[in-house]
């Protein structure tokens, strides 16, 4: 069996072919459609065999733009690349939007301020925006006085020393007043100071009380009676 197989292979090998090293001529149908002949019509009609090779196909059309070209240069994005690759970007959103008031670094899902929610549940729109009438403005008539504690500090900007430096610089350029940040900062600072002072004060009071107690105990007769008999003897 094996010998037969080898013989068959040898029969079709290019070396044993009567045409030498050329491919053997075997009568078979061109299923691939690659064995083409070109028929030229006109004054001198002729038939030119155009496909002497098996499995020869037309090469794919080469596109002008491939991955071989530097696409960053092609689209003129070198500047953006050098801008982002060079420096180390800060993680926080507040570093991208330094002038935005309020706490913006916390996840948006916490206070329902996420942009996703705007896409998933778009707000009711399509109505014309009109200025408020006097009657409507009456709804905004407020009582004098400060806001309750829980609302007053809710939207205050967090105090960051290095950030304030940037802010100062920015405001100098834009000329916008930073009332709220100043107000909120100072108010929050004073608030913290008050707390600290109170704490210190309380601690001092406690210490004084303790000292007084000790002194009283030392001088009081109870204190001496508190000693053990052995101590008395010594």
């Amino acid at each position: 069996m094996m010998g037969d197989q080898f013989r068959k292979v040898e029969n079709y090998s290019p070396k044993s072919s009567p045409r030498g090293a050329r491919s053997p001529v075997v009568s078979r149908q061109d299923s691939s459609g690659t064995l083409k002949t070109t028929i030229l019509l006109g004054k001198n009609p002729s038939i030119v065999p155009s496909g002497p090779f098996y499995l020869m196909k037309e090469p794919p059309v080469e596109s002008d733009l491939t991955g071989a070209t530097n696409l960053m240069t092609y689209y003129g994005l070198e500047h953006s690349y050098s801008k982002f690759s060079g420096k180390k970007l800060k993680e926080q959103l507040s570093s991208f939007l330094p002038t935005l008031p309020g706490v913006i670094d916390s996840p948006g899902q916490q206070d329902n301020s996420s942009l996703r929610s705007v896409i998933e549940k778009p707000p009711v729109g399509g109505k014309e925006l009109l200025p408020l009438s006097n009657i409507q403005l009456d709804g905004f008539r407020l009582h004098p006085g400060p806001l309750p504690e829980q609302y007053r500090y809710a939207n205050a900007t967090p105090i960051k020393k290095h950030k304030n430096k940037h802010k100062k610089h920015k405001h100098k350029e834009s000329g916008l007043p930073s009332q709220e940040t100043a107000v909120s900062d100072t108010s929050s600072e004073t608030h913290e100071k008050k707390h600290k002072k109170q704490k210190r004060h309380d601690e001092e009071k406690r210490k004084r009380k303790k000292e007084k107690k000790r002194k009283k105990q030392k001088h009081s007769p109870e204190h001496s009676s508190g000693l053990t008999p052995s101590q008395h003897s010594i």
Partner: peptide, 29 residues
Amino acid sequence: FDYIDQGRNPQLYTKDCIEKALAKNEQVK
């Protein structure tokens, strides 16, 4: 939007995209 919702700098997304595109470009080349 996901970056912004998480309180992250959206420029990080741009940076990531540029780095990925460059890596893919080099790989294909």
